[in-house]
Amino acid sequence: MIWEELNESLIMNHLDAKDSSDVFEKIGGTLIREGYAKDDYVDALIEREKDFPTGLDIGGIGIAIPHTSVDHVLKHGIAIANLKHPVQFIQMGMDDEPVDAQLVFMMAVTDPGKHVDQLQRLVDIIQDRDVLSRLLEADNQNEIISIIKDKEETL
């Protein structure tokens, strides 16, 4: 379950970011400081996003799920932020269509096999628009963890 692996220090509420690079700096920077990722993680995120964008439009709610290859990661984890202002990302699989992301799930992946499993679990959560709406409104870390826990218990 994802909720069991969530760490309060990797959850940011109403994060103030001006663009996607700023999102990568702030959330990715937290993953580096907390020992989850190497110093080059943020640059790797920015590079990968150019080639393989990670924005998704879930029935009108924009989200992004940025990640890198395992080379830039030290330990497996996931950082979550709801944003103070929406930030433009390009949609995954679309390469030119933008989406205004309001929620970011940043994955630090150490094992590509485990990545698929983790992504599948994340996909099960993000496909629920009601869950996304609640995550957007969440004011603290515990609220985010409990929304995800509640959802995962129904799966």
């Binding site: 998704l56 439009d57 879930i58 995954m92 699989g93 679309m94 390469d95 996909v123 993000i126 629920d128």
Partner: peptide
């Protein structure tokens, strides 16, 4: 699950709905 502009002469469908759920 990425954009493809090329025509391969075989039907091509985007699998993105399996990620977004939409």
């Amino acid at each position: 699950t990425s954009k493809v502009r090329r025509d391969y002469g075989v039907p091509l469908i985007t699998g993105m709905p399996f990620i977004s759920g939409i």
